[in-house]
């Protein structure tokens, strides 16, 4: 009995060590590529929203190289901005935002032009909204609406509107029909980041 237990412990230990060694070897072998992939994932979102041209089939390391060359990070107040000198529209600053959606968290990037009041681009790169309805926030049709929209209302009050009854102000875009709840949440999280940008030294740069 005792001998059997000792053997079992010995067997388990040996098997465990062999498995651990195998996994360590594989991990060591793939570590650099995995890290590059994870980093490239973030970088791709930032490059896209900043309109930095890159080859869509580029490998992770190529993307990182483009990012290192063109994008700078700046800390202003609490926020970290990713900036890029765009050859046509001038300096672009983008900042991350997030907030609750209808079904799960939504994450995105807001990119402002040099005046820090005109939106250059908005991208919602992570969400769990209803496919076909709220899920359309990540479609080009919805995101492109934000190009050139002001973050100031007609009376100078900061904030954008995602409205259902026709966007007619310079700070409004059309909501997705059938996805009022998602659009309200999106509006809310955009306005929160806009407030933070204006409060957090977005203007002293």
């Amino acid at each position: 009995m005792k001998k059997g237990s000792l053997y079992a412990v010995f067997y388990a230990a040996t098997l465990g060590i062999i498995c651990a060694l195998a996994l360590t070897a594989v991990d060591g072998f793939t570590a650099s590529r995995k890290a590059a992939n994870a980093r490239a994932e973030e970088v791709r979102n930032i490059l896209t929203v900043l309109d930095v041209g890159f080859d869509s089939a580029a490998t992770s390391s190529e993307l990182l190289a483009v990012y290192e060359r063109d994008v700078r990070t700046e800390s202003r107040g609490e926020l970290t901005f990713y900036t890029y000198e765009h050859p046509e529209v001038g300096k672009l600053s983008s900042v991350r935002f997030d907030g609750p959606g209808l079904w799960g968290p939504i994450e995105g990037l807001l990119c402002l032009r040099e005046d820090m009041t005109t939106i250059h681009a908005v991208s919602f790169y992570r969400h769990e909204e209803t496919p076909g309805l709220g899920g359309e926030i990540s479609s080009d049709a919805f995101q492109d609406q934000f190009r050139g929209v002001s973050i100031l209302g007609p009376s100078g009050v900061p904030g954008v509107g995602v409205v259902g009854d026709g966007a007619d102000e310079p700070n409004e875009v059309d909501a997705i029909s059938g996805a009022t709840m998602t659009c309200d949440k999106v509006e809310e999280m955009l306005n929160r980041i806009i407030e933070e940008v204006r409060a957090g030294g977005g203007f002293d740069g």
């Binding site: 209803t130 496919p131 076909g132 309805l133 029909s177 059938g178």
Partner: peptide, 8 residues
């Protein structure tokens, strides 16, 4: 299946 059509 067709959320868009059904809600609009």
């Amino acid at each position: 299946g067709y959320p868009r059509a059904m809600s609009g």
